[in-house]
Nucleic acid binder design. Structure first.
Lengths: 111, 111
DNA sequence: AAACCGTGTTAGGAAACCTTACGCAATTGT
DNA sequence: ACAATTGCGTAAGGTTTCCTAACACGGTTT
C-alpha cells in the first residue's frame, strides 16, 4: 500500500561512493555505524551497502556533529523521532480501520 | 527547470550490485556496453558506476535479446527512440518560447 | 586524573573489479 | 556451402576497493 518501492531506500551504494557523495571520510562513516547511527547492509563478502536515504542521513549527522552534538545525543534524538513516527503510523492505521469498517467493507461474495 | 535531481539517474551502483539486481552476468553487462547499449561512468580508479535507470535499461535489453533481437537492432531502436525524444523536446521548448513571448515577459528592470 | 569522544593513520588481508584473450555453439551474411 | 559475426562462458594476471584491528592524540566529560 505504501509504495516504498523507491530507489531511495535500496541499499546499493558502496562506501567509496558514499564518501564522494557526502564528503565524509570512510573512517567517519564507519564510526557513525559503530555508534549505531546508521545501518548499512552487507554484501556476501562483507562490503557495506548504503541507500540514498542513508546518504542523506549521514549528512544530517555530520551537520549535527559539527554543531557540537555528540553521537550519543544524536542517537537519542533519532530514537525519539522514530518512536513518534511509529505512534503516528498506528493512529493513521486506526483511523483507516474505522473508515474501512464504516464504508469500505468489500469482503465476502460481493462481485 | 526539469528536476532530474532524482536518484534514478545518479551513477552510483557498481557492477556487482547491478549483477545482483538484474540477474545478468558481469560478462553480459560489459558486453552490452561494448555494443554501445549502455554507458556507465567510471570511478577515478576505473570501476564502472551505473544508475537505477541503467539497471532498468539493462533489463529491457536482456528481454529483447531473449526475444532474439540482436544488439545491433536494439541499438538502432534506441537511437530512433532517442531522436524522437529530442525532437519532442525541441517542440515543447518552442511552444514554451511562444508562451513566454506572449505572456511571460519578465525581463529587464521590473522589480 | 581517568575515561570518553571523534578522527587520522597504518598494516595486512580479502573482496571486487578490470582488461585481454581463447573458445564455441548458434546465427547471419555472401 | 562457407565465412563472418553474435552472445556469451571462462581463465589469467593485475589493480582498486573494502575490511578489521590497533595505535595515536587533542578535546571534552565525568
Amino acid at each position: 500500500m505504501t509504495s516504498d518501492f523507491s530507489y531511495k531506500n535500496k541499499k546499493v551504494i558502496t562506501i567509496g561512493i558514499v564518501r564522494d557523495l557526502t564528503g565524509l571520510s570512510e573512517r567517519q562513516i564507519r564510526y557513525y555505524e559503530e555508534r549505531k547511527l546508521i545501518f548499512p547492509e552487507r554484501s556476501p563478502g562483507g562490503s557495506r551497502k548504503y541507500s540514498f536515504a542513508d546518504v542523506e542521513l549521514l549528512v544530517e549527522i555530520a551537520n549535527k556533529i559539527e554543531d557540537g552534538v555528540q553521537t550519543h545525543e544524536i542517537r537519542k534524538e533519532m530514537l525519539r523521532a522514530q518512536k513518534k513516527q511509529s505512534q503516528d503510523d498506528v493512529r493513521k492505521k486506526m483511523i483507516q480501520g474505522q473508515l474501512n469498517a464504516q464504508f469500505g467493507i468489500r469482503k465476502g461474495p460481493s462481485s
